[in-house]
Design a protein around this nucleic acid. Structure first.
Lengths: 65, 65
DNA sequence: TTATGAAGTCAAGTATACTTGACTAAATAT
DNA sequence: ATATTTAGTCAAGTATACTTGACTTCATAA
């Protein structure tokens, strides 16, 4: 699963900690998502898409569908 | 998180086992999703949306956004 | 009536998402 | 030169997604 989180965050000039606060997850979770350690839950994916006012498919893309 | 899985499956006249096979998950997982026991992973949500040729937001809806 | 298929559920186990706390390294500010 | 901020990472723990195997109940078929 690919995501554009790092780019979207950069566009908003947010630190990982600031993004984490808005999503109500830990800074380490944001870092792990950006560095591809794991994929978010569906719930968190919804929150992220909502925050950036995008569709889930715009933020996340299935690599091997 | 709400989902329309049961309706979508019914529209296709599939059993839970048949749907599970296509999604490559267990029958119990499909049942648990339909009966609201838990939400799918983002990966599985993508697979489900893909199978029914819908967007993720059309199949799943965040209850308390 | 008996058998079979489908849905629902439970227990116990494994895998993955997410947490807290701590530490390093690099960049930036003082 | 020193202090602070940010990103990245690790370990250990908790929460949730998903598995297998078994069992019950209901509906329909033989």
């Amino acid at each position: 699963m690919k995501n554009h989180l790092k780019v979207l965050r950069a566009e908003n000039n947010w630190t990982q900690a600031e993004l984490a606060n808005q999503l109500r997850v830990s800074r380490q979770t944001v870092n792990a998502l950006e560095t591809g350690k794991f994929d978010p839950s569906l719930k968190l994916a919804f929150q992220i898409a909502r925050l950036f006012r995008l569709g889930i498919e715009e933020v996340f893309q299935d690599e091997k569908p």
